[in-house]
C-alpha cells in the first residue's frame, strides 16, 4: 500500500466528456422505517470512473441498485441516459437495457452454458439473431480472456472465471454504463487480480463505470473520482490522489485508516 500511495498514476488517456450520463437529485430511500439513503445528489458524466467506498451498511450498494431500479427510491429524481426512473415499466426496461450490472456473487444462470448466459439478453431483449449474438458473445468472452470456456456451465468454472463471464454477459448488451457491486469481495485472493485486470481494460476503453469496492489500488489506478459514503450520505468526494492523501472529514480518515492499516 505504501508503495502505491507514492505512485503517480497517469489517467490522462481516459477522457471524461461533458455529456451527463446519470443525474441523481435529492434522492431519498427508506427500507420500511429505516432511512437508508439521505438526500443523495450525484452527477456522473459519460466516461467517468467512480469508485464508491464506505463502511458496510452505509448504503453504497443500495445507491447503485437504485440506478437500475433494482431498488425503488421514494423521493427525489434519478435520470439515467436522459430517461427518468419512475413507475413506468417502459422507462425501467429502457434504462436496464443500457446499464450493465455485475454482482458480488456473479449471479450467473447455472442451468445455461457460459455462451447461453451471454446471449440470453441480446436475443430476448435486443431481439438479436442467435448467430449474431453468439459471435458478439465470443468477442466479449475473448476480451475477458475465457473464450475456451464458452460451452461449459458456470458451476464448472472458478470464482474469478465466473465473475469475468458475468462482466462479459453485461457487456454483450453493449451497455453505456456499467455498475459493479463489490465485484471482487466474494473471490479468493489469487483471483482478484484477473477480475480487476478486466475492469481496468474496460475503464481504458472509455466505459462509464460506477464501482462499489474496497480495492483502493484499483481506485487509484482508474477512478477519476472516489466517493465516500457513511450512514446513507455522501460524506466526501474527490480525485483519488487528494482523497487518499488528504481526506477532509474525520469519518473518512477513520475509514481509510481502518482499511489501509494492513
Amino acid at each position: 500500500m505504501e508503495e502505491m500511495e507514492n505512485t503517480v498514476v497517469d489517467r490522462s488517456h481516459m477522457q471524461v466528456s461533458e455529456e451527463i450520463a446519470i443525474q441523481i437529485q435529492s434522492m431519498h430511500k427508506w427500507f420500511g422505517e429505516f432511512h437508508v439513503l439521505k438526500d443523495i445528489n450525484l452527477t456522473v458524466n459519460r466516461g467517468e470512473r467512480i469508485v464508491i467506498c464506505g463502511p458496510s451498511g452505509s448504503g453504497k450498494s443500495t445507491l447503485i441498485r437504485c440506478i437500475n431500479r433494482l431498488e425503488e427510491h421514494q423521493r427525489g429524481e434519478i435520470v439515467v441516459n436522459d430517461v427518468e426512473l419512475t413507475d413506468d415499466l417502459k422507462n425501467i426496461a429502457e434504462v436496464r437495457s443500457e446499464v450493465g450490472m455485475v454482482f458480488q456473487h456473479f449471479n450467473l444462470f447455472p442451468h445455461l452454458t457460459v455462451l447461453e448466459n451471454c446471449t440470453l439478453a441480446p436475443i430476448w431483449v435486443r431481439r438479436m439473431p442467435k448467430a449474431e449474438a453468439e459471435d458478439a458473445a465470443m468477442k466479449y468472452l475473448e476480451r475477458v480472456k475465457i473464450p475456451e470456456q464458452a460451452l461449459k456451465y458456470p458451476g464448472q468454472l472458478s470464482g474469478g472465471q465466473q465473475q469475468r463471464v458475468a462482466i462479459a454477459r453485461s457487456l454483450c448488451m453493449n451497455p453505456r454504463i456499467m455498475l459493479f457491486d463489490e465485484p471482487t469481495s466474494a473471490l479468493d485472493p489469487e483471483m482478484i487480480a484477473e477480475v480487476l485486470d478486466v475492469m481496468v481494460g474496460l475503464a481504458e476503453s472509455g466505459m462509464t463505470m460506477i464501482c462499489v469496492t474496497h480495492e483502493m489500488g484499483f481506485a487509484r489506478k482508474v477512478a477519476n473520482r472516489v466517493i465516500f459514503m457513511d450512514e446513507g450520505e455522501i460524506i466526501e468526494q474527490n480525485v483519488p490522489e487528494e482523497f487518499f492523501t488528504n481526506p477532509k472529514s474525520d469519518r473518512t480518515k477513520l475509514f481509510l485508516s481502518q482499511i489501509l492499516q494492513h
Binding site: A93, S97, M101, F103, N107, F109, W124, V125
Partner: peptide
C-alpha cells in the same frame, strides 16, 4: 432460487 437470479434477470432488462 437465490434472489440474485431474479435480480440478474431483472438487471438485464428481461420482463
Amino acid at each position: 432460487i437465490p434472489k440474485g437470479q431474479y435480480e440478474a434477470a431483472e438487471a438485464m432488462g428481461l420482463t
